[in-house]
């Protein structure tokens, strides 16, 4: 599969939020401490955003809304990624674009 990097997605997500997915080093601490053991969140999702893979975000809708926003991953993150706010930004994006709940 060919993936074209599309910066529109990260620009759009970052406009109204403290979105800083680029600070993620993909180290996996977030996945290791997650009480729900959500392996995908947040590091791989952030890669999808950085690559502009909007359709992959839509496929992961349930995962994105399952996150507890409890912040344990953020507390443990060595990269200072605003994980909870980033996940909230993904929900906002899905609400206003793909999922359409809050409209």
């Amino acid at each position: 599969m060919t993936t074209l990097v599309n910066s529109r997605l990260v620009d759009e997500l970052g406009r109204a939020h403290e979105f800083n997915a680029a600070a993620c080093m993909d180290c996996g601490v977030c996945s290791a401490v997650c009480p729900l053991e959500i392996e995908l969140l947040p590091r791989r999702l952030f890669r999808h955003v950085l690559l502009g893979m909007e359709e992959r975000l839509v496929e992961e809708t349930e995962t994105i809304y399952s996150c507890l926003l409890c912040g344990l991953c953020e507390e443990s993150c060595p990269g200072g990624v605003h994980i909870t706010e980033n996940v909230r930004a993904l929900r906002h994006f899905l609400n206003t674009n793909a999922v359409g709940g809050a409209r």
Binding site: Y65, R88, R91, L94
Partner: peptide, 10 residues
């Protein structure tokens, strides 16, 4: 609750 769900404008 709606903030957590990403309904920012509302």
């Amino acid at each position: 609750l709606t903030w957590d769900l990403g309904a920012d404008e509302v």
